[in-house]
Structures are given as C-alpha cells and as structure tokens.
Design a binder for these strands. Structure first.
Lengths: 126, 126
DNA sequence: ATAGATGCAAAGGGTTTGCACTTGA
DNA sequence: TCAAGTGCAAACCCTTTGCATCTAT
C-alpha cells in the first residue's frame, strides 16, 4: 500500500528533532528547528514527511482545539496534554482520569477521550 | 468599545436557531439552517454575527480539536462535550471530573480545562 | 535505472476583510 | 439621518498538490 520510507537528510533531521523533543511540536516549530540544520527546507516537505511518519505509525498527532496539530513519537502510552496560554507550547501530562464514563448520556458509546488543561507552564508562571 | 448590537432579521434568525438548538452548532451548520429562512444569507454575515455575539457574551465557542468551532448560548454552566465520530455532531455532557489537578506537573498553573469524549451518539450507535 | 523525495509555485478550503449598498434606531 | 449590518468578491492563512529536478536504493 504505502511505499517504504526512504532515508533522506531532511527526514533524518525531522525525526531526530522529534525524538529529542520532550514535547509535541507543530509543523511550524518543526520547520523552524529543522531549517537551522537543513537550509532551504520547504514547508511542504515537512508536511509530507510528518504525514508519512504518522501513516507509518512512527508519529502521533496531538490535536488541541483551535490550534494546529502537534506531533510526537508514537508509543508513549496513554496520556493527555497541557497547553500554555502564554508561550503557546504544548506539554505532555502523565496519567489519566477515571470515571470518564459517568459523564456519558444513555446509549452513547465512547471510543476515546481527550483531556487538555490550559494555563501557564512552569517557565511562564515564573 | 464595541457598539451595541443592532437587531436584524439575519441575527434574529441566527440567535433563535442557537437558542433552540440542544447542541452547539458550527458556522456551516448555522449558515445552512438560517439560509432556509433568510434567503441569500452570506457566510460572512454568519461569521460576523457569531463573532459579535461571542464578543457581547451572548455565545460561547466550543472548540473541538481538529474541528471548526461550534457555538452555544452562554451561561450554561461548566460542562464538557461529546463529538460523534459518525455524524460529526457535538453534544453537551453534564457535569465534570474531579482531581484534574493531579495530572499537573510542578509549577504549572491551570486556568481551565477541556474534556472531550469521542464515539457514537445515541442515534448513530443504533 | 527508477520510484520516492524535494523545492517551488500554484491551487484549495475555510475564514476574514474591503467596499458599496441597505437598513435599523 | 447615518452608523451598523449585509452581500459579494477579493484577500488571507495554512495546508495540499502539480511538476520538474534530484537522489536513495
């Protein structure tokens, strides 16, 4: 179906940046970071690389309401996110909550859930 | 600052649709519903009206990750949402969860939070 | 050699804005 | 009367796509 991913310096750079990042990154953040190492990097290349890596199961997208998606390496296990309202960065949170199902109306079926906290990160809270 | 809202048939229609809706509606849903009653209604008018009503505190926007915002009347009290993965509609959930703060890393400050459940609504679950 | 990857520029899709016309107060 | 509101079209922003060129395999 999908052809195997080919190693290129652009993709190596992107993969390494994501691997080392302790938080999920947006396409814009990735492009900015990778451009420092791979000059002339096109934004379309970042979109395509990220799309291919998500497709290949190497990355997972982190969707925050009203924000462009961020990407983080797959297989981190179930967790949620924190969006800093000042610096606009997104952080991973450890763990989850129980009793989500008690919010549910009759006959509704939950397949997944997202919990996002908004506020100030440690750096911005000063 | 912001001038008082003027009553027009377009805005009356939009306000009434939102008032009667039991679930938050997107601009597209609003435009579709209102167009049946107000012919030739421009999509820009819906965006502007919704923006003005949010500004005026009459509406609140419901942001779902990866989806366009929905709007619902303000003052419903704290609650969260359910997004149906089949019909793409969003529903209100009653109540909230405790212990959200135990997810938080040290020094982070929460100002608000969002909990969204994804799955099938009663109609789609059959 | 050759299919996949890249960069650029053009195209898309949803939202916003400029402008002349209409309308509510 | 006359500023706010409307419809249309153009502008915008972010993302995707087409295409000629480059490159990993």
């Amino acid at each position: 179906m999908s052809p195997p991913l080919r190693r290129t310096k652009q993709r190596d750079t992107l993969a390494e940046i994501l691997e080392r990042s302790e938080r999920p990154l947006s396409v814009a953040e990735l492009h900015a970071a990778a451009s420092k190492r791979t000059r002339g990097l096109g934004i379309a290349t970042v979109y395509r690389a990220v799309g291919a890596m998500v497709e290949a199961g190497e990355l997972e997208s982190v969707e925050i309401a009203g924000e462009p998606p961020r990407y983080e390496r797959a297989g981190k296990g179930h967790h949620h996110h924190f969006a800093c309202e000042r610096c606009d960065r997104v952080f991973d949170l450890a763990g989850c909550l129980e009793n989500l199902r008690k919010l549910l109306p009759p006959k509704f079926r939950v397949r997944s859930h997202a919990v996002t906290l908004y506020g100030l990160c440690a750096a911005c809270a000063g």
